[in-house]
């Protein structure tokens, strides 16, 4: 059967034109440059260039520092995404139930969203400072021999805590909006059928929040992969002993500080493919279970 065709007018292209131009100039062109650069060995000043095919990719994947960094990044992203979403969900459900001074609670919980990641890192760094940090002293007083400047586990704990704290508030906003979008009639009907708050949450509320949760999962994984850079840079700089060196931080140290353009381009292309792959997986396997 032949598909029905309408006559095309060029006007729609004019409307999408500016948007497409922005995408090409600010996204596709730089990304293309990174891919091109990733096949080159070039001195920092661009005075001598050699095309080396996949040499930069080989050097990256076979490098133990990169492999350790990749392992940490996956674990870090999983933990940060999970806890950011879980804590935000818990807070949103609780805040939604509050009757007195509900707005004050909500405002206070949303506040931290205005904090930029490097500032969050700075605040966190001060709280964990070995000489004046309250959290540092609290953990040590509680019997935990906490020292993030020496111990990789403690340092990872610290950056995850700061990254989660920073992200909870934005997730909170989305969950609260999602909860308020659930019709009161549905909730009342459920209340008649089931007295257990917990069961009602898992069978009614949570499935109805699924689109929000899925959206947040995608956003939070991207956050953990890329935006936590600022937190790492001002707290641990990837240390101690490379324990908190995320992939995007390594791209920065190799490319920006170390002037290895080919190597860091190859690393960013691999990072891009990883996040792309994760997003595709999420859409294929998790989104199927989401009902809109």
């Amino acid at each position: 059967m032949k598909r029905a065709q309408f006559g095309h007018s060029p006007i729609p292209y004019l409307f999408v034109g500016p948007q497409l131009a922005i995408i090409v100039v600010f996204f596709l062109w730089p990304a293309g440059q990174a891919v091109y650069q990733s096949f080159l060995l070039q001195d920092a000043f661009g005075l001598s260039t050699r095309f080396v095919w996949f040499r930069n990719y080989e050097d990256t994947i076979l490098n133990t520092v990169w492999l350790e960094s990749a392992g940490f990044t996956l674990l870090f992203s999983a933990l940060v995404s999970f806890f950011s979403i879980a804590v935000a969900l818990l807070l949103a459900v609780r805040a939604n139930e509050v009757i007195h001074a509900a707005n004050a609670y909500k405002t206070l919980l949303i506040w931290a969203y205005a904090v930029a990641p490097p500032v969050a890192g700075l605040i966190g760094g001060l709280m964990f400072n070995p000489f004046i940090g309250d959290l540092y002293h609290l953990f040590n007083a509680a019997g935990w021999d906490f020292n993030h400047t020496r111990d990789g586990f403690d340092a990872s704990f610290m950056v995850i805590l700061i990254a989660v704290w920073k992200q909870v508030s934005i997730n909170f906003i989305f969950f609260l909006a999602g909860l308020q979008g659930i019709p009161a009639s549905v909730q009342e009907a459920a209340r008649l059928d089931c007295r257990s708050d917990e069961r009602r949450f898992w069978t009614i509320t949570f499935p109805l929040l699924a689109p929000t949760s899925f959206f947040l999962l995608v956003i939070n994984v991207t956050y953990a992969f890329f935006e936590t850079f600022g937190i790492i840079d001002v707290t641990t700089r990837g240390g101690p002993g490379g324990a908190t060196n995320t992939l995007v931080y390594k791209v920065y140290t190799d490319g920006f500080l170390g002037a290895d353009l080919g190597g860091s381009s190859a690393q960013s292309v691999i990072l891009l493919l990883m996040v792309l792959g994760l997003t595709v997986l999420q859409f294929r396997f998790i989104e199927r279970k989401v009902h809109y």
Binding site: V65, G239, G242, T253, D254, D260
Partner: peptide
């Protein structure tokens, strides 16, 4: 610069 990073890493360890 990268070599110094390598040293920092293993000295810590």
């Amino acid at each position: 610069v990268q070599i110094r990073e390598v040293m920092y890493k293993y000295y810590d360890q």
